[in-house]
Structures are given as C-alpha cells and as structure tokens.
C-alpha cells in the first residue's frame, strides 16, 4: 500500500491553476467543446489528470460536469476537441472502445441490470470472453474454463464489496447503495486503469457512505486512477488528492483541497457572484 506521502509526491510540481501540467498525466484533454442548441455546456481549454490519484470534479448545478464525463467516456459526441488516455488518442471513439482502452465509468443514476442476477452483472464486466462471440457461444466446453475463472474473480470482488450474500438475487432487488457498490464492483471486473464515478454518493444511505469512500481510496492505493463527480463538499475535501472546479462549462480552478477551500472564484461560483446574477 502506498502512503499519503507518495500521493503527495505524485502531485508535486503541479500548479494550482486551471489547465496546469501534471508530472505523469493519464488523461489529457484539449479544447473540448459541446453545446446544446446555442448553449455552451462544456468548454474546457486544457485539462490533465494525474495517474494514481483521486481527482474530484466539482461545480454548481448545470456546470457541465456530467456532460464532460459523457464526452470523455464516449457517451456523447463533442463539437470539437481532442483528448488522449495513457498516451493514446481516444477522442471520437465510442463508449465501448473507451472502456476497452481501460477507462471505465459508472452512472449518476445507477444502471444495475435489474433482471440479471448480481453474479451475472459481475460476469458481464469480464473482458476478452470467448463465449461472448456469437459463434463462440455454442462452444460451451471452450468457454467454460474461462467462465469459471471469471466467476472466481467476481466472487472475490463481491466478497470485498460485501455483496456475496446477494450473488444469486436479481440486481433489481438491491437497495440504492448496494446498486452503487455493485456498479463499482462490476466496473472493476473490467480491470480498468482509470475509473470514472459519476456521483457515487448520490442517493446512498449515510451508513454506506463511509464504506464507499473506503473502497474509493483503496482503489487508488492499488494504483488505479479515480476521477469522480460529487456534490458533497465534506466528502470531496476528505478523500481527493486534487480538485477540478467547473463552472458554466469552464475549468475555473484546480488544486489541492486546501487551495480550493480558499479560492475566491470557487466561492463566488458556488454562491453566485453579483455580476452574473
């Protein structure tokens, strides 16, 4: 396990200013723009996300956080802009291609596959399955070994996320918090380098929040990069290594939690500055 110091090392040298360069960025975006019928939802000049950290994306309602998320993960198409992941350009790729490149997302409104069992939900995340080809599907003996290995890994993850007792239940019968856990565990089944969580705490029973936070930090400690959107300031300040603030589609501030807390622009954006009404 890495200590906080090494995380701090990773962030060392990064200036607390919009578009600042990072030592070892895993995600680099340039000039990403998206507008809906004349209204510019996202207009990000330059953004880098440091590898192996927890980066939080915050901003007032309608700041374009979810839109940016959708754009970066290939779930929406940009008007212009490019971005690359781990050195490879992924702009313009579709959602599944981005996921295969190693950048996996979850959704604000949890998308548990309700009429599949919890275990099937997990197995769906496994990559490179021979039996997922239409011809391979008929060759049961060929994919059965792979299926057993995947099941083993899925059960381990379910154990870790405390869902093992529910393994054979329909995913639709889980509570909201359990669905969030399942979604996170399912994303991990793909063995991603970077995991993007869209409001992981929204609608979660407060008792489960601590355990979710624990899971997020342990992801970072395993060497994965986490980018997440969140509203709850206490949560963000507690676990993020780096914070990116979005307002009206633009990055208005970046920095460590301590930098952000004292940033006047951020306070204005959240409370509404007088000039902008």
């Amino acid at each position: 396990m890495s200590s906080d110091e090494t995380v701090a090392d990773r962030m060392a040298g990064a200036a607390a200013a919009p578009g600042s360069a990072k030592a070892d960025p895993i995600l680099v975006a340039d000039g990403v723009r998206r507008s809906f019928g004349g209204l510019t939802a996202v207009d990000v000049g330059h953004l880098e996300v440091q590898r192996g950290t927890i980066t939080a994306l915050i901003g007032p309602n309608g700041a374009g956080k979810s839109t940016l998320f959708n754009l970066l993960t290939g779930f929406d198409r940009v008007d212009q802009g490019t971005w690359s992941f781990d050195g490879r350009r992924i702009s313009g790729k579709r959602g599944h291609q981005v996921a295969r490149a190693g950048m996996v997302r979850t959704f604000q409104l949890t998308k548990a596959l309700t009429r599949l069992s919890v275990l099937d939900n997990m197995l769906l995340g496994a990559t490179g399955q021979f039996g997922e080809g239409i011809a391979g599907a008929f060759l049961r003996p060929v994919w059965q070994r792979q299926e057993r290995a995947n099941t083993e890994r899925a059960l381990e993850l379910l154990e870790r996320f405390k869902l093992i007792a529910k393994r054979d239940d329909m995913a639709g019968s889980l509570s909201g918090g359990q669905r969030k856990l399942l979604e996170m565990a399912r994303a991990l089944m793909t063995d991603p380098d970077m995991i993007m969580l869209d409001e992981p705490m929204a609608g979660v029973n407060p008792a489960l929040v601590q355990s979710l936070l624990g899971h997020i930090t342990s992801l970072r400690d395993e060497g994965k990069t986490v980018l997440f959107v969140e509203h709850d300031m206490d949560v963000i300040m507690g676990i993020s290594d780096w914070i990116v603030v979005l307002a009206q589609g633009q990055v208005i501030a970046e920095g460590r939690p301590s930098d952000i807390r004292s940033n006047q622009q951020v306070i204005d954006a959240y409370l509404g500055s007088p000039e902008e009404g």
Partner: peptide
C-alpha cells in the same frame, strides 16, 4: 444486459 440497459453494457466495453 442490453435489454436491461444498453448504456451500462456499453460502459463495460
């Protein structure tokens, strides 16, 4: 999975 939610399936690659 696609029947339940195709975006979720897409997000898994």
């Amino acid at each position: 999975g696609i029947r339940e939610d195709e975006e979720a399936v897409r997000s898994l690659g």
